[in-house]
Design a protein around this nucleic acid. Sequence first.
DNA 1: CTGAAAGCGCTTACAG
DNA 2: CTGAAAGCGCTTACAG
Lengths: 394, 394
Amino acid sequence: MVTGVRISARYRHTLAPDPAKAKKGRDSNPRTDVNLRKKPAAALQTKAASAEPKRKKSTINDIARMANVSKKTVSRVINDSPFVKEETRLKISTIIRELGFAPDPQARGLAFRRSFLIGMIFDNPTAQYIVNMQQGILDAMRGTSFELVIRPCDRTAPTFLADMRHFIERQKLFGVILTPSVSEDDRLVKLLHELDCPYVRIAAVSLDTPATMVVTHDVSGAADAARHLADLGHKLIAHISGPATFRSAHERRRGFADGLAERGLKLARHYDREGGYTFESGIAAGTELLSLKPRPTAIFTGNDEMAAGVYKAARDLGLEIPRDVSVVGFDDSPVASRMWPLLTSVRLPIRDMGRMAAEKLFHRRTEKRAQNDDATDVIPTLVVRESTDKPPVT
Amino acid sequence: MVTGVRISARYRHTLAPDPAKAKKGRDSNPRTDVNLRKKPAAALQTKAASAEPKRKKSTINDIARMANVSKKTVSRVINDSPFVKEETRLKISTIIRELGFAPDPQARGLAFRRSFLIGMIFDNPTAQYIVNMQQGILDAMRGTSFELVIRPCDRTAPTFLADMRHFIERQKLFGVILTPSVSEDDRLVKLLHELDCPYVRIAAVSLDTPATMVVTHDVSGAADAARHLADLGHKLIAHISGPATFRSAHERRRGFADGLAERGLKLARHYDREGGYTFESGIAAGTELLSLKPRPTAIFTGNDEMAAGVYKAARDLGLEIPRDVSVVGFDDSPVASRMWPLLTSVRLPIRDMGRMAAEKLFHRRTEKRAQNDDATDVIPTLVVRESTDKPPVT
DNA sequence: CTGAAAGCGCTTACAG
DNA sequence: CTGAAAGCGCTTACAG
């Protein structure tokens, strides 16, 4: 298939090593393979080029020459400058299209003093959340010249801020998108301002100027869950929240309590436990709650993982869902529809949220421009499945 | 907190628009905000700089001046060239460390004609797989000057190859990591050779020169599953495979059949169905298999998602797991330990695989160098839980 | 509306 | 072992 020449070139490539390790300094230097490319065309032709005429990628200079203009004018067209005669623009953009020319992002970035990379910074451990969010951001980036660089983090780590500074400064990120709970970290946001790096935060409550926020109204979704349970006739209703370090945990509790209040019910202190958004914490809190007298007939958990834990706790105690106890989760993750019985849960359109966050960052100057200065609001919806029913008759 | 000056600068930033849309050409040009930065320091000082002395980032020139050498020599140190006197190196690297200097990846990339971006190209729909893989790759990248750019794809799309070419060529990727099933696509690999882009493929079988492969021996894991079921006493054993377009589907079937053969059993034709690696296909194939006479007493599925489908099928048919039928999955995804009963499954160390793939790509020139020319082998392990037991007595 | 010059921060190619 | 010059492919700052 592929010729020997090329393959060996590939494998001879040497890693340009980490500058951080410069002290060690052994090893060869990276000029190894590049010569090959510069050899007179004949060298390649011999074995390889028969396959495809390895056309060298064209540059802004080629376009300029072909269009009989300066490269600055080509640059203007690339950057949508209004100061180009329509005729000139047309001529240039035609050539650009025909050649399939695309400007080099590195060169552009170097001159712009800003890269074409969008960073996604996250610390949410739920795989599905992360992947959906990535997909949404990529949806918005499709057809642009941006690429998505991902960055998990641990905001409790001592080097957290230093790492972030390094990352953002060095890559000269065009902008970053922050998801919960790192989106709630004001130290990071302060750093972002200092580094002059645009950002959009996704959070359960507005924490910043509207133009930088995608707000998921967890309050509203949790209230729906509360009304649903109340309307089924439940009175003894418990809650397992996420950890206090997550704003969403508070918002969901608040919304749930509000929803109950609307129906004349209240969230009793001893029916309200703090979990950790994990399966295990759901088992623990679920076991405690279900051992109480009187036993709650319904439990709302801050996410689906903990709901799965409650399922396990119930089974271990010989209780059946929803006959003995109803359960409502939050997230509507894939597990929700793999569990048995299928879990009633509050759904957030994660992928859409990612897309909206990226669009905000790009600050598209279209008719939607005005809207971009407002916060973007996301309303969760309750998905009723099999895990909720009337309370047991006693 | 943050000063008005900076904030407004941030929001005034204009998106450098997509060159692809250059034809449209309306709108303003992006020189808007840059002036602000160039304003005499006083402008910033007025309100802001009191916080921290906004030190301009140092460049290779600063280092050179301070060390009394040419910038070429600094460059040599950065790139670990052996042609630097130890004393010179020491002096330079000390200064580098003290200033916290890190070379600009864009400038370096432009000169190198290759970026410092690693691409992860994937089409696997399982969120947990993707996230674990990303984590592993990032594990290997920590402390290097590389960043991870992600790229989901659909290799059945008509523009697939063109998109990939565009992506790789334009970003001048340092290298890419391919996960199943796109890792099995020879057209893509051919393109990678043509573009002279290093890669590592993760797949269930060696498809390429060893130095480019991380091979997961799915055969071995599936054989373990077969032996486990045979040793429990099962004779009527069924299989639901992944789609024929995935190599892993064939490997898992083959391994399973091999394992059965070792125990004097064989995988009967009518007990062998093709699924689609999805929950729904697991339900469909599971329902069919469990309606057969004689009914199989055990089912091995090509992944956990389909096992979850079999769970549902069994419940709908009034069958109990593992009393009436044993089930073994593959992947050991989080659902496996959220399901009830807990699913016996074959585990692949995805995160480690990601790390190993990235390390191969970096081709670390350490003592491990020799090993890097061999394929990297990954052996799955069977995790026995609650979904497998002796067959029902009839 | 357009262009010539200088520069972004690095590395290559060449010379010593 | 070290350096001066040229260049990577773009954009900015300035001039017209």
